[in-house]
Simulated scan of single mutants.
Amino acid sequence: MAETTHGPVDAATVPRRARRSRTPRFVRTIWQTKGLARWILLVGVVITVVFVMFALFAPWIAPYGYDQVRDAGGDFPKSAAPGGDHLLGTNDQFFDIYSRVVWGARTAVTVVVLSVVISTVVGVPLGLVSGYVGGWFDRITVFLMDALYSFPSLLLAIVFSFLLRDALGGGIFAAALSLTAIYIPQYFRVVRNTTVSAREATYVEAAKAIGAPPRTVMRKYLFGNVVQSVPVIGTLNAADALGTLAALGFLGFGIQPTEASEWGYDLSRALDNVGAGDVSPALWPGLAIILLVTALTLVGEGLNETLNPTLRRRRLRKVVLPPRSEEKSR
């Protein structure tokens, strides 16, 4: 028999298939995709990362605070032109526009992440339990979610903003909860419908036959199969949440200027300047909204076409045939 060694294994001797298995499946799927979907996802991720960096390092990037109207040299000028100490100028509230745009990135990212995370944490388990248990619990939850889903999203966000303002004020957390009420029914409906179809599958019946309790069946056998579309829904909801947040701020129902910088509010304050021929106060927050909404939409569409096996175009691997062995001499 051949002698077995237990020394360190050289990475070069490890088969390529074994090394590739260590890479997360999600990353491998994206890497093996070709065509426009991959570039859409890449462009969306790059732009999104830029805004996330602005959000994380806003105190070091922004020269002033989001509500700062004076420095050591005195009060800021009102509606000043770009240049000097104010790179993008100031608005009619004496705020530095560049600082407001940078701090607005932190507000937007925080609200979007909170709303999507809370919606997922509430909607996914609720849809999973409702679809698996069925009965009266399923009927009640479906009725409540359909009732919420039937309202226009902006109107529902305005209603919850009014209800939460007295209890939580006009801050970031209240705005995130106002948006959460819009997206919980979406996660619930997707997960519940998928669970209803999957609970009759053979592997679920086999788990029941060996005595697995409902909690184990849902956690171990159903959860991984019903949440595959949740990341795509989450990225698309993030883009919609940013637009809804900007709409709330534009209408005056969103985050108050003393609580945080918000692009929609700054855009509404700049309407008078636009009427007077000064577009700078409206240009930069509006451009930030457009760029981030576009980036998040590209990420969602790219993930959809990358992770969906019916839409994904896989990269063809080059086939290398082994060298032909020399014919044995007769």
Rank of each mutant, 00 (worst) to 15 (best):
A37D: 00
R38F: 11
W39L: 12
L41T: 00
G44R: 04
I47H: 01
M53I: 15
F54P: 04
F57A: 11
F57E: 02
P59C: 05
P59L: 05
W60F: 14
A62R: 05
P63I: 00
G65L: 03
G65A: 01
Q68S: 09
Q68K: 11
V69W: 09
F76V: 09
S79N: 14
A80G: 13
A81T: 10
A81H: 15
P82S: 04
P82W: 08
G83L: 11
L87T: 07
G89Y: 12
T90K: 07
D92A: 13
D92C: 05
F95E: 05
D96W: 15
I97V: 13
V101F: 11
W103K: 07
R106H: 12
A108T: 15
A108P: 13
V109N: 11
T110P: 10
T110R: 13
V111Y: 12
V112S: 14
V113G: 07
S115E: 04
V116E: 06
V124T: 07
L128Y: 00
S130R: 01
Y132D: 01
Y132C: 01
G135W: 09
T141P: 12
V142T: 14
V142F: 11
S153M: 12
L154K: 10
L154M: 10
A157C: 06
I158P: 04
D166E: 12
D166I: 07
A167T: 14
A167I: 13
L168S: 06
I172Q: 07
A174N: 10
A176F: 09
S178T: 10
A181Q: 04
